[in-house]
């Protein structure tokens, strides 16, 4: 069991000439083990929340912790145990797919040998082993996102924060991704952000809704579906819409 906790988090962006734009306000969220869909409308702050969890950003107040490891005070150890796939994945020019993934492993503190081994395993998981020796920058957008996913998986982190990982993937790749979620979510904490409720299937055990700077819902997928009006054809979408409409 991994205990990932956002505690009393506030965060705002400083905009030139416009003062501060508050994104998260006193948000507390205990992220459950398993696969969680983080839902929210565009601009709700999903990417910010995941970036805070990955320590790519630091909160204005509050703290993020993992099994008592503080993201600020024990940053190196914390980062070794958390993986983050940002929304915009970019490959390092000139590196092959395998080198790219292995380099990500090395950056997460793995030894050279371990990162090479880890890269091979991660590429097999995302079904990119046949493209391992191709330059990463020559792959399609969808394939590059899978390289990004492999880069997040390479160091076998306890917590995976995936920011819109399925955008740009074709239906076949999305199905593959769902299978992968089931596999990797068995013993890890995985948070997948999306604004597309159609993406949420039984591969997800939990749903969290980020709205108005805080977690408006946090619970099991079935409980979230149950909030939909009776007879809804798309219960997740209906539940989401009714939740954010109620919050307004």
């Amino acid at each position: 069991m991994h205990s990932c906790l956002y505690q009393d988090i506030s965060f705002s962006y400083r905009r030139k000439g416009q003062g501060e734009l508050a994104v998260l306000e006193r948000l507390t969220w205990h992220v459950p083990t398993g696969v969680t869909a983080l839902l929210g409308i565009n601009g709700a702050g999903k990417s910010t929340l995941l970036a805070l969890g990955a320590t790519a950003l630091m909160p204005k107040s509050g703290k993020v912790s993992l099994n008592e490891l503080d993201s600020r005070d024990q940053q190196t150890q914390f980062r070794k145990r958390v993986a983050w796939m940002p929304q915009q994945y970019r490959a390092v020019p000139g590196l092959t797919v395998r080198e790219q993934v292995a380099y990500s492993g090395w950056l997460k503190g793995m030894s050279r040998d371990d990162s090479w081994r880890g890269a091979t395993e991660a590429l097999t998981l995302v079904a990119l082993q046949d493209l391992a020796d191709r330059p990463a920058s020559e792959l399609s957008g969808g394939q590059q996102r899978r390289v990004g996913l492999a880069s997040a998986l390479v160091h076998d982190a306890e917590v995976l924060l995936l920011d819109e990982p399925t955008s740009g993937l074709d239906p076949e790749q999305r199905a593959l991704f769902r299978e992968l979620l089931v596999k990797i979510g068995a013993d890890r904490t995985v948070v997948v952000s999306t604004h597309d409720t159609g993406e949420i299937t039984t591969a997800y055990q939990h749903v969290a809704v980020l709205h108005a700077g805080t977690i408006a819902f946090d619970g099991a997928l079935q409980d979230f579906s149950a909030r939909a009006p009776a007879g809804s054809e798309r219960p997740i979408e209906s539940a989401f819409l009714s939740l954010i409409a109620g919050g307004k």
Binding site: A56, V92, L107
Partner: peptide, 20 residues
């Protein structure tokens, strides 16, 4: 420039920037 274009520099790594 390669590291910057690959988004490596600003990403949260366990390795220190000195090491990288």
């Amino acid at each position: 420039a390669r590291l910057r274009r690959g988004g490596i520099w600003d990403a949260p790594h366990a390795r220190s920037r000195l090491g990288i």
